[in-house]
Design a protein around this nucleic acid. Sequence first.
DNA 1: CCTATTTATGGACATTTGTCCTGCTATGCC
DNA 2: GGCATAGCAGGACAAATGTCCATAAATAGG
Lengths: 187, 187
Amino acid sequence: MEQLILYFTQAGFTGAEAAQIAGCFTFRKIPKGDFFIEEGKISRHLGFVEQGFLQYFVIVEGEEKTTYSVGHGNFVASLVSFLKQVPSKESIRALVDTSLWLIDKNTLKKIQKDIPAFAHFYIELLEWQICCIDESRLDSLLLNAAERYKKMLDKEPSLIQQIPLQYLASILGVTPRHLSRIRNSIR
Amino acid sequence: MEQLILYFTQAGFTGAEAAQIAGCFTFRKIPKGDFFIEEGKISRHLGFVEQGFLQYFVIVEGEEKTTYSVGHGNFVASLVSFLKQVPSKESIRALVDTSLWLIDKNTLKKIQKDIPAFAHFYIELLEWQICCIDESRLDSLLLNAAERYKKMLDKEPSLIQQIPLQYLASILGVTPRHLSRIRNSIR
DNA sequence: CCTATTTATGGACATTTGTCCTGCTATGCC
DNA sequence: GGCATAGCAGGACAAATGTCCATAAATAGG
């Protein structure tokens, strides 16, 4: 909790505000393999990833397709479901042991009203979130699988050790067979 | 301008507020083929598309790759560039004659401060924008080119008449040769 | 009306990626 | 230790998509 208070203090809130805001979050650990949210349910919480890695996916024709992934320092939620409070099209699962700070939608709305500066903070958070999605979108459109694999090697080197190849392949948008080819071609 | 005032009145603002907000926008027409923003420049304006259709693209290895597209009733900007005020990675071009309402970043910030209700309106706008990007992201990951073509036929039937196939192919993420195969297979 | 240019179609072939399968290795469990 | 299982690599072939090209139809400009 101290880290959260520190975080909001550094973001420009007074000590009292930071404590009030931080108090709205709850802590949760998700063991490897467990779900943050399942398809069809409503994403009621926004999570800040303190540690770990999560995979967004849908099942289409019996196959899991990864649609997004987030690591520590990022926010996680099935966005459309959380924002509109409609059933989620995606499931989200921890691929490694993960710890999160959670806040629910109503509380989030409430502190936007109570603390005007928080509304502006939330605007910047949304804007930053848009930039993250945008980068992911451009990556999947402009890089090929080999380039995406190299980028992942670069940004999350520890993941390659911890996560079975079949998940890495799904995150990269290729079959395990093809990821094997990519790894072979790199070395 | 009356339409804009009406729009903001219906969004819950008082007549005076709606007039003040609408007054912050300027009108611009972009003829078919002209640019809304070019790669490398900073996206200084957020635009609301009154009429028309715009294509986001980058040039990679001499080839245009479409990264996003928007039609009437949507907002347009090179998002990361507009939000962070950094040079845009993408260019945006009108594929048909297009008309827009524009607002610049500073003015947008200013009315967020002056009219508290506008901050909350802007939050909803950002959230809605996230949902739009998300839908586009899921479409490009989960639908194949033929399905995306059918969806486009469904949502923007007039485009297929107005825009040369090479652009449609680029929007769908395939070569014109392959789009020709898709059209052939549908009929 | 004629010509040049743009646009659309589709053949032939190459490349990329997926599917199916086999075997090898490592690891946990009794 | 031995066995069942999960994880990974890669061969052989199939399917999807790109490249290059030739042709024909549509359109614009004089």
